[in-house]
């Protein structure tokens, strides 16, 4: 079975690299985007199973990306996990209202993030059980 593909959207190259290493070690394929504009074009091109999205981005911040994803029929089903340095008290509610599946403040605990990724990824249909 093919690995799930995750699109990492972050303008910090080191963080992108770290997430890539972490996710690949957990058997996910990764692609990346460095700003709001390329996030959308990459989402179209790569059709990822899940997007990890930073909020503070050049060329269209995270909220713009969330809105574009939500209003695009081909992309609106892709779950988004927001991973940001911003304060949850001012951002979390707005992020969730904008359609994200989860909110994490940086630095996010690896185990927790992986657990939520696992649970958020669209379920692959399991083969029907054999009749006994």
């Amino acid at each position: 079975m093919a690995n799930s593909k995750i699109l990492i959207v972050d303008d910090d190259p080191d963080l992108r690299q770290a997430l890539k290493l972490r996710l690949r070690a957990n058997h996910y394929d990764t692609v990346h985007a460095v700003d709001g504009y390329s996030a959308i074009t990459q989402a179209h091109k790569e059709t990822p199973d899940l997007i990890i999205l930073d909020l503070g981005l050049p060329a269209g911040d995270g909220y713009v990306v969330l809105e574009r994803l939500q209003t695009d029929d081909r992309l609106s089903d892709i779950p988004v996990i927001v991973l940001t340095a911003r304060d949850p008290q001012s951002s979390e509610q707005r992020v969730l209202k904008s359609g994200a599946a989860a909110f994490f403040q940086k630095p996010a605990d690896n185990a927790e993030l992986l657990e939520v990724i696992r649970a958020t990824l669209p379920k692959v249909l399991a083969p029907a059980p054999m009749p006994s």
Binding site: D12, D14, L15, A18, R22, A85, P107
Partner: peptide, 20 residues
Amino acid sequence: SHELRTPLTCIYQFVTILLD
């Protein structure tokens, strides 16, 4: 505190990558 979090995250990520 917002600006401190980005380098902090970077250190956390790479240290755990090494540790794991």
